[in-house]
Simulated scan of single mutants.
Amino acid sequence: MAAHGDNNEELRLFQTGEHACGYWPERQARDLVLDPQDRRLGALYPMALTWGFRRSGDLVYRPHCEGCRACVPVRIPVARFNPDRSQRRCLAHNADLDYRILPAERTEEQFALYQRYLQHRHLHGGMDDHGPHEFDQFLIGSWSHGRFMEIRTPGAAGKRGQLLAVAVTDVTEQGLSAVYTFFDPEQAKRSLGTYAILQQIAWAQRNGLPHLYLGYWINGHRKMDYKRRFHPLEYFDGKRWMPGGQDNADGFP
Rank of each mutant, 00 (worst) to 15 (best):
R54K: 08
T107P: 00
Q115G: 01
C68Y: 12
R30Y: 01
P36W: 15
H133E: 15
D84R: 14
E108K: 02
G42N: 02
T16G: 01
V74L: 03
D58V: 15
A92N: 03
R30Q: 13
C90N: 11
H124Y: 08
H122I: 04
D35A: 12
P36M: 15
L41M: 05
D136L: 04
H124L: 10
H120L: 00
D38W: 09
R80N: 06
G42K: 03
R30S: 03
L44Q: 11
R89W: 06
H122M: 02
I76K: 07
D128C: 01
A29I: 09
Y99I: 05
R40F: 01
H130A: 12
S56K: 11
V78W: 10
L34K: 02
V78M: 06
T50A: 14
T50D: 14
D129R: 13
G126P: 00
R75D: 11
W24D: 09
A43T: 01
S56E: 13
R100E: 15
C21T: 11
D84N: 15
R116T: 01
T50V: 07
R55N: 10
V33L: 13
L91Y: 01
P73K: 10
Y61N: 09
P103D: 15
H120C: 02
R116C: 04
L123V: 07
D38I: 12
P132Y: 07
P25Q: 15
G22V: 13
Q87C: 04
R116A: 08
H64R: 05
N82E: 15
C71T: 08
R100F: 08
T50H: 10
T50P: 00
H122E: 01
H93M: 11
Y61S: 12
S56M: 13
G57F: 15
H124S: 11
E108W: 02
C71F: 08
M127V: 06
L123Q: 05
G125T: 05
L34N: 02
R30F: 02
E66Q: 11
A48F: 07
T16L: 06
R40W: 03
R75N: 08
Y23G: 05
G67P: 00
A20R: 08
L32A: 04
G22L: 13
Q119E: 14
Q15R: 13
L102W: 11
E109M: 03
G22T: 11
R106Q: 01
